[in-house]
Design a protein around this nucleic acid. Sequence first.
DNA 1: TAGGCCATCTGGTCCT
DNA 2: AGGACCAGATGGCCTA
Length: 309
Amino acid sequence: MLTCDEPPSSRTSDPFRASWATNQLVRSVKPEPGRAPEDTFESRGEDGERGGRDEEEEEEEEEEEGEVEQACGLRRRGSHKKKGSQDRVRLRRIEANTRERNRMHGLNCALDSLRKVVPCYSNMQKLSKIETLRLAKNYIWALGDILSTGKRPDLLTFVQTLCKGLSQPTTNLVAGCLQLNTRSFVSEPGGESFSLYPGSQHHHGPEGVGSSSADSGRPLRPFCGSALYDSPSPDSPSPLDAATLSPPINFNGIFSLKHEEPVDYRSCHYGLRYCSISQGSSAGLSPYDIHLRGQFYQVQEELNKPFHN
DNA sequence: TAGGCCATCTGGTCCT
DNA sequence: AGGACCAGATGGCCTA
């Protein structure tokens, strides 16, 4: 995974690095069509690794350009001055590229942190950027709906909301995270069919949240096992990761997120921990308690209000 | 092999 | 002038 504090050039194990290096090589050999060869200067190496290309080579290139111009009957005036400004432009371009790269890394870090707080997180099968954003939007929407109505939705409604507009694979992933067999969306023993996808028939199953058994009577297994607690962070291997998915939540405790480590938004080593403390009354807590890294957010109060009345 | 996803480069635009 | 942001282009990797 990309990290904010490490440029790609320093990650030898990163698969992207290989492609990046290859890219540089390819670009140095084959300039993009319609683009002047000098436009690919950065591809020869940057950030202090200019790949053995030195001033001598640049001067040689200048001479070659001069020869070409002479051959074409052109003569560039003030080329001496121009070289300095060209170097400057070149340098600025390199710096701009580096900044842009870092900016995108920061964006990816933010996206990674988002992946960890939406109801479907796996080190094994990362959600794509677009699916992460869609799922996050749906999740926010679902939470907002709960806040406004003060009612817990049934499992199917909740999953349907989460999966609106998501691709089939992501839908399956989310369903898996929520321990819901996707077949449950397609057909019911009674013959009634419904789907997660928009426009399809909605089914509000009779199952209550707490006792939901959408998967043919199989009780929902909460993700609050001690094994999950043992995992120091989503980045660390956990039994759930080993089992393809590491859902951060269970439907019983959809909103029971517990982030116990300090947030370092620069390093992006969030190490979120999700745990369900939602066995509700027994723990003296509402299933909707939210713990964010040891802090009780005001949100908790807001969320609990409807259930304390 | 096509399509999806991604990282990167690049030039343009806007803002400070 | 320089940085941030954005979108288009390009090419690599992976999977169905």
